[in-house]
Design a protein around this nucleic acid. Sequence first.
DNA 1: GTGAAAGCGCTAACAG
DNA 2: CTGTTAGCGCTTTCAC
Lengths: 333, 333
Amino acid sequence: MVATLKDVATLAGVSVKTVSNVVNGYAFVKPENRRRVEEALTATGYRPNVGARNLRRGRTGFIALMVPELSIPYFGELAGLVITAAQKQDWSVLIEQTQGTRDRERRTLASLGPHMVDGAIVSPEALEAEDFAGVTGGVPLVMLGEHAVDVPLDHVAIDNVLAARTAVGHLTGLGRRRIAAIGQNPHRGTAALRLEGYRSALAEAGLPQPDELVAPALNYHRRDGAEAMAHLLSLPEPPDAVFCFNDLLAIGALRAAAERGFRVPADIAIVGFDNTEESAYSLPSLTTIAPDKTAIAQTAVDLIRRRSEPGEPFERQDVQTPFSLEIRESTGT
Amino acid sequence: MVATLKDVATLAGVSVKTVSNVVNGYAFVKPENRRRVEEALTATGYRPNVGARNLRRGRTGFIALMVPELSIPYFGELAGLVITAAQKQDWSVLIEQTQGTRDRERRTLASLGPHMVDGAIVSPEALEAEDFAGVTGGVPLVMLGEHAVDVPLDHVAIDNVLAARTAVGHLTGLGRRRIAAIGQNPHRGTAALRLEGYRSALAEAGLPQPDELVAPALNYHRRDGAEAMAHLLSLPEPPDAVFCFNDLLAIGALRAAAERGFRVPADIAIVGFDNTEESAYSLPSLTTIAPDKTAIAQTAVDLIRRRSEPGEPFERQDVQTPFSLEIRESTGT
DNA sequence: GTGAAAGCGCTAACAG
DNA sequence: CTGTTAGCGCTTTCAC
């Protein structure tokens, strides 16, 4: 059926060791033998059995990527980049979807044994500090995005406070005075940080901070953004700008504004967060915080590589990747 | 370090076989032994080494999913569903991104050895018939979407001709008379079928079919849709409706129309294809063909399962999954 | 330089 | 019902 190392060895008239040496690029093989092995290799169409190789080598060849859902554009884009980055380190990526529920996140985390994966990149949404308790002893773990609780894990993210402050600073700079926020959520670490950035930008501009302008969002889907925006626009005194904690919320907000006859940006400006591809084509296109997703993916994979290599263990890393503010029509003049 | 079956056996004072039996849910184990094994299992925190198990069982535990890019919403959504469907069959999904280039698709196809994966679901974009030549002898392969060339592979897709005819029929039914198409591409199998459906709907309505109304698209991204639409709108006599071969093209078309002051649907109606989540929230929201993606994912995984099970080989399957027309604002009154 | 042989962790005959 | 044992395909000492 499929050629094994042994088949190749028999055909070439050498031992498996020699074949293995050739396959793995070991330098010292007698030219004559090398030639015969290579011939047998192509003749049989040999392909190494990665599973067996990894079993022997004590590595799995996989890293896990835990995300809420691949259908969420940000995570679809990120997953694509992680796969690309992992490929360069000879890793395949196993994607675990949790729907953002704590229970499934916890179960996924628990299933990340060393014989399953060599490491994992996790993007938790609902996990609490205690859920990480037993896990830290296992494989290298890198956390993406902030988390409210302090967890002793490597961590890659943009400076969420600064990013939010930049976004809202852009709005105050435009002369907007009644700036709302959509996405408040006590269970999301990033929400707290983005809210903090929002508040500090308002304070910096000497603007009041009425509670009614901070709209919660249970989830971060388009629908939630539309609902929150509908609420804000029905206020006696509606906002003249909105900072949404992600692009999906902003897309929903855009629609709610249009449905109620508010013009964007004339009546109300909108800023998003994530710079998903969709945001460049919405009507109007979305001003948004653009995290360097490629850097996030590469940094995360690299951290796992460094942790899984032998050598001095190093202290917990907290890497901040760059971001920029992408100014588009939704806050344009 | 990590507990193995042997460790558990030693601790429980039984043989590995007994432990294996318990782990694999074999019914006939003496209650007393079962109890002791279960105790040892939790005491050691044993987790099976899936790699070793699969090596022994002669399966890999993986199926591959070949897509152009995960950042394309349709494929992000589909991949999520495939992962979910595969999980039920105890399969993990390895995602291979090809960027839709023939070279990478070919290489991916060639790398799909039986020791890598138990099967593969491929969504080729540029592959030609000859590229499948050596591949068919390997693992079960399921192709998604149509392909121009006839390849002896299991195949899951909606009825593209009928779907396109339905979409365009909707436009003719609305009284549109100059209906354009965006997405013509000689290298894409689905393009030919959707074009055929488009033509037959026009013929059915007794409408002329000027060549100038069929706009090509090299890729199917938002940008391509915008460019094609810009071209159509600059025609001496612009169309009053456009059928786009996917949602991304339609989103781009929406923007091009808005930039040129065309109102959708008043001046020009637009229909998309795929029903990506984005299409329900664009402004205006997009009328689109909604394939049952869950059915596609499940059918594809199921086909691989049936092919990889022992038993009578069955003839090549060509499964048509259901679709519907989702009518929204972009063709609304 | 290369061969023989052990064994990664697991499952499945085969005995008993 | 359960223990012993032989590999799955590969890498890797250890001799020669």
